[in-house]
């Protein structure tokens, strides 16, 4: 071996006694790792952009003639736009959370969990990372807004980014909960499909929930995605010139009986679900090793 050793002494470094600053650094570095890995994986970026495009232009384009009579004059693609944005975020964020299964398989999870920081700090970093990556991807969908008749309103874009960030934080936390239970890499993706697909169909992302049978309405009301998707749609539709009848058909809002759930309460519900899922994930990961 040609590796020669130099015999200079190495200065000891100081490791502090924990505290909030240390936890924060741990959170930030886990967050940063997600961004680095995202940049290194162009295939992931491209594939996650293609899927929403297919939904928007192929499914949306194909169905628009068929459903034209029922949309009050609004292009079906325009209706679909907020839903497709939510959908792209949903899958990317779920994948970011479930990627913990790979971290376990390749041992890196142990490097994280054996450090002198709380599991909460690490998982929070993971959620922030998943949310950032998913929101970055949504930016690409937002860029297409003009093609489906949605104006590039700066305030709308800002509101969308905030809402999508919160939504993807919640879904990443859900992915982490799943990852804590799944030990096999090959069962991770099927599980994500199995959980995420119904969440998506029962969230109002692809069609208005008002048309669903009553028993399914109960399911949509306990689906946290419903409360994440509706504000996204409201923010977009607020910027469109749409008749009140069309708005009533396409965006009826969420009703608990005769009570219309206000947007801020919806956002609050999403934030609360995020925290609950994150807490659950922390509990589950604390127990695994």
């Amino acid at each position: 071996m040609a590796d020669t050793l130099t015999h200079t002494a190495i200065a000891r470094v100081v490791v502090p006694k924990g505290g909030f600053g240390h936890e924060l650094r741990a959170t930030l570095v886990v967050w940063n790792r997600e961004l680095i890995r995202f940049r290194r994986d162009p295939a992931r970026v491209i594939s996650s952009v293609i899927q929403p495009l297919l939904f928007l232009f192929v499914l949306g384009g194909g169905l628009s003639a068929l459903v034209a009579s029922g949309t009050g004059g609004v292009d079906f693609k325009t209706f679909l736009f907020p839903g497709v944005m939510s959908m792209s975020v949903l899958f990317t964020a779920a994948f970011a959370g479930i990627s913990m299964v790979w971290d376990r398989e390749f041992g890196f999870l142990r490097e994280m969990l054996v450090a002198p920081v709380s599991t909460a700090a690490i998982l929070t970093g993971k959620c922030l990372g998943g949310a950032s990556v998913a929101t970055l991807q949504a930016v690409i969908v937002i860029l297409l807004a003009g093609l489906v008749g949605v104006p590039y309103d700066p305030l709308m874009i800002l509101e969308l980014l905030v809402l999508l960030f919160i939504m993807s934080f919640m879904i990443t936390a859900l992915g982490l909960v799943l990852a804590s239970r799944v030990k096999q890499v090959q069962s991770a993706m099927p599980l994500v499909q199995m959980i995420i697909t119904p969440l998506m169909f029962l969230s109002g992302a692809l069609f208005p929930l008002s048309r669903l049978p009553a028993w399914l309405t109960v399911v949509t009301h306990i689906n946290p995605m419903t409360y994440a998707v509706e504000p996204v749609r409201a923010v977009v539709f607020d910027r469109l010139n749409m008749s009140t009848e069309a708005r009533a058909i396409l965006d009826p809002g969420i009703w608990w009986g005769s009570y219309q759930v206000p947007l801020l309460l919806q956002v609050a519900l999403v934030i609360a679900s995020s925290l609950l899922l994150l807490l659950l994930a922390v509990k589950l990961f604390n127990r695994t090793e």
Binding site: V14, P16, A26, V29, R33, I36, M112, P116, V117
Partner: peptide
């Protein structure tokens, strides 16, 4: 997926190295 130095940076932050 990280470089050698990035792996070390990650570790340093996780351990709160000065």
């Amino acid at each position: 997926y990280l470089t050698a130095e990035q792996n070390l940076k990650f570790h340093g932050e996780l351990y709160g190295v000065d």
